[in-house]
């Protein structure tokens, strides 16, 4: 299925895109049918002198058939869409594959702070790398993120991952992603958080294993105590 505008940089991005395309197809079909019938009636039944409208109760089987059958099909379409949606929702939000690394994402009034596990791969050790507005991940690794906020609601939104999860103060929410394409992308805050909501941009660097290792070495606080 063709992707949407943005690259698909996570393992489930194409799942969400496919779901959007399926909904677009199902919904677009009914939209076109409804508009066609609608405009058809308007053009066909314009008032003509001497020709009177018909008197239709709207309860006769003959006419209601044309509404109830489409309705049954719409219910079927809905069931299909519900199933597709729950499948994708389960994949992204309910199941949690075991992680190669875990990062902590802290939203605060008007900056994202990312705590990377550092060389030892373990969080909350002294070699953690705390970066502001810069998230460095290795392509192919499965990441868990522990999302929280220090003051108001924020929303950790990575469009290329098709990922969005609100950061709620007082809660720690765990989610996952697996980057599949290297590159530099945007991270946005998708929940209004005050005067600086507009500048709460952060950078996502998806690096190859070598570059990522080099980055960790360069930023290892213990090694490079400048």
């Amino acid at each position: 299925m063709p992707q949407l505008f943005l690259d698909q940089a996570s393992s489930y991005a194409h799942e969400i895109d496919n779901l959007i395309w399926i909904i677009a197809a199902a919904v677009g079909f009914w939209f076109i049918v409804a508009e066609a019938v609608f405009f058809g009636f308007i053009l066909k039944y314009r008032a003509k002198p001497g020709q009177r409208a018909a008197y239709i109760e709207g309860t006769e089987r003959k006419y209601t058939r044309f509404i109830s059958y489409p309705h049954m099909i719409i219910i079927l379409f809905d069931v299909v869409l519900i199933a597709g949606s729950i499948r994708v929702w389960y994949l992204v939000k309910q199941q949690l594959p075991d992680a190669d690394r875990t990062i902590r994402v802290i939203g605060q009034q008007w900056a994202w702070t990312f705590v990377h596990p550092g060389a030892d791969g373990e969080l909350d050790t002294d070699d953690d790398i705390r970066m502001v507005d810069e998230l460095h991940v290795q392509v192919g690794d499965t990441y868990h993120f522990q999302l929280t906020s220090t003051d108001v609601l924020h929303s950790f939104s990575v469009p290329v991952f098709r990922l969005k999860q609100d950061a709620v103060p007082g809660r720690t929410i765990t989610g996952w992603f697996q980057p599949t394409r290297t590159g530099e992308y945007d991270i946005q805050c998708a929940e209004i958080c005050g005067i600086g909501h507009g500048i709460m941009a952060a950078k996502l660097f998806i690096e190859s294993p070598e570059d990522h290792a080099a980055w960790i070495a360069a930023h290892n606080p213990t090694a490079s105590l400048q």
Partner: peptide, 28 residues
């Protein structure tokens, strides 16, 4: 208990310029 105060970080993302204006932030 809410979240974590951002301790003054060694890597304050200094090289990350970007043409944003200065922001005042009432962090807790």
């Amino acid at each position: 208990p809410a979240g974590a105060e951002v301790a003054s970080t060694a890597e304050a993302g200094s090289e990350q310029g970007g043409e944003t204006e200065e922001a005042a932030a009432p962090a807790p």
